[in-house]
Amino acid sequence: MKSLDQDTIEAKLLQFPDWDYFDDALHAEFEFENFKDCFSAMSRIAFECEAHNHHPDWSNVYNVLKISLSTHDAGGVTQKDFDLVEAIEAIVEPEE
């Protein structure tokens, strides 16, 4: 899979305002009500990661989840990362 150029990445990020692009990766930070809600979201995200066969670099401290996504084999951000971003957003964003 080929990495995307910076213009394409920035255009795609317009759909995902919680995400930033730097250091050749997509980054987001999500804050939840408490640790239980954060861990629950992480568990649901883990199932999506397995389904996409794509796994983030992430960390959790209490109610904050930090996620970085890149496609290591491609040396940057690919469509695979944006597919996972979309899945993650469906989990962390409250339903209207």
Rank of each mutant, 00 (worst) to 15 (best):
Met42Arg: 00
Leu69Gln: 11
Thr78Met: 12
Tyr21Ala: 00
Thr78Gly: 08
Pro17Tyr: 09
Lys80Asp: 03
Glu31Tyr: 01
Glu29Met: 07
Val85Asn: 05
His55Gly: 10
Pro17Arg: 00
Lys80Val: 12
Asn53Ala: 15
Phe39Glu: 04
Ala51Val: 09
His55Ser: 12
Lys66Val: 15
His54Phe: 12
Phe22Cys: 05
Met1Gly: 14
Ser59Ile: 04
Ser59Ala: 13
Lys12Ile: 12
Ile45Asp: 00
Glu95Gly: 08
Ser70Arg: 11
Ile88Asn: 00
Thr8Tyr: 09
Gly76Cys: 15
Lys80Trp: 02
Ile67Ala: 07
Ala11Gln: 08
Leu4Gly: 00
Ser70Ile: 04
Glu95Trp: 02
Thr8Leu: 11
Val92Arg: 13
Asn63Asp: 14
Leu69Pro: 04
Glu89Thr: 09
Thr71Ala: 05
Leu13Ser: 15
Ser68Met: 09
Phe16Met: 02
Asn34Thr: 05
Asp73Thr: 05
Ser70Val: 10
Leu13Val: 01
His55Val: 07
Ser70Cys: 07
Val85Met: 09
Asp83Asn: 14
Glu29Cys: 04
Ala41Ile: 11
Gln6Cys: 07
Asn34Pro: 10
Ala87Tyr: 07
Gly75Ser: 05
Glu48Thr: 00
Asp24Phe: 11
Glu31Arg: 06
Ser70Asn: 14
Asp5Leu: 05
Gln6Glu: 09
Ile91Glu: 03
Trp19Asn: 03
His72Arg: 11
Ser68Pro: 10
Glu89Pro: 02
Ser68Asn: 13
Asp5Tyr: 07
Trp58His: 04
Lys2Ser: 11
Glu95Cys: 08
Gly76Tyr: 10
Ser43Asn: 12
Ala74Glu: 03
His52Gly: 05
Asp73Cys: 11
Phe22Val: 09
